[in-house]
Design a protein around this nucleic acid. Structure first.
Lengths: 153, 153
DNA sequence: CACAATTCAGTTGTGCACAACTAAATTGCC
DNA sequence: GGCAATTTAGTTGTGCACAACTGAATTGTG
């Protein structure tokens, strides 16, 4: 039992639409919830990394988030304008810029503590389901990243 | 056995990073594969809907894709500039704009037929796994959309 | 019929993703 | 020590998402 080629296109429509929609729906929930904190979703990701790991150079931040300087540089400028971080040229290596939490940025973590519970509630999943989904997504990302490199070659 | 509040933040970092990364990884694979067709991922989504449903007004297109005119108007202009669609004011209702496939746009479907197989290969999943993931994502989207409305209220 | 409310596409402005590039600092190699 | 290759941020340009708004056409109601 094989699937006609033209039906593959319909299936692709469904899966890639579903993924796109899910991603944007998640974004939408975060947008609403993060509005109180004055953060966008990508800005929240950056703050999470800084709260977790402490001050980091832009390069390291980018590695954790898989984002390049083209995305991070303007984003960090906005976080700096909002008073949440400072950016300081490293003395040891003048190419590098250290991103440091300000007091205000550190303090914001307290308000952020309520975010995950609200997000979890919005998904309607329990912690184990979320963990399972995360694992599934990570596998997928790994496969896709590997495939992207192959396709490019 | 309960989880400390501060660990929730770490879990949130993981799940929202994973989702974001998966979404971008998918985008990356599509970007590489669609390059041959001269389409971006969102443009491909629009073409899929048009191939599937035939000519549609912008409004209907937006409902299928959950995109508003702010996103679609410029995107459709680019598809028109590429010669894949035409946009024509409806005679019956002058507010409405019909998006019609050109011959070139219709013909592109033939080249697109190979895309889904390449994407499926990139995910490393079989058809059933893809279907299951799709179902999971649709459930999630439904829950998230409902929650977004609640949060806004 | 008249006119307020709604619908529809489009525009504007902000922010993100990413490719391609620049400029400056550092490292490695001879 | 000197110089090419690499590393690091940043900039520029394109495209998408979305909120807020505009303007024109249509619909509904008195």
């Amino acid at each position: 039992m094989t699937t006609p080629t033209s039906d593959w296109l319909r299936l692709d429509q469904q899966i890639c639409f579903s993924l796109n929609a899910a991603s944007r729906a998640f974004n939408g929930v975060y947008r609403v919830i993060l509005k109180d904190l004055g953060l966008t979703y990508p800005q929240y990701l950056v703050m999470l990394v800084l709260w977790e790991r402490g001050d980091l150079p832009v390069k390291k931040l980018g590695e954790h988030l898989r984002l390049d300087s083209g995305t991070l540089s303007p984003l960090l400028k906005r976080l700096e304008a909002a008073g949440l971080v400072r950016r300081e040229r490293s003395a040891r290596d003048e190419r590098s810029v250290e991103v440091r939490l300000t007091e205000e940025g550190t303090a914001l973590r307290e308000s952020a503590l309520q975010v995950p519970r609200r997000i979890a509630a919005a998904t309607g999943c329990d912690v184990e389901e979320i963990r399972a989904l995360r694992t599934r997504l990570d596998e997928l990302t790994a496969a896709l990243d590997a495939a992207t490199l192959e396709e490019k070659a």
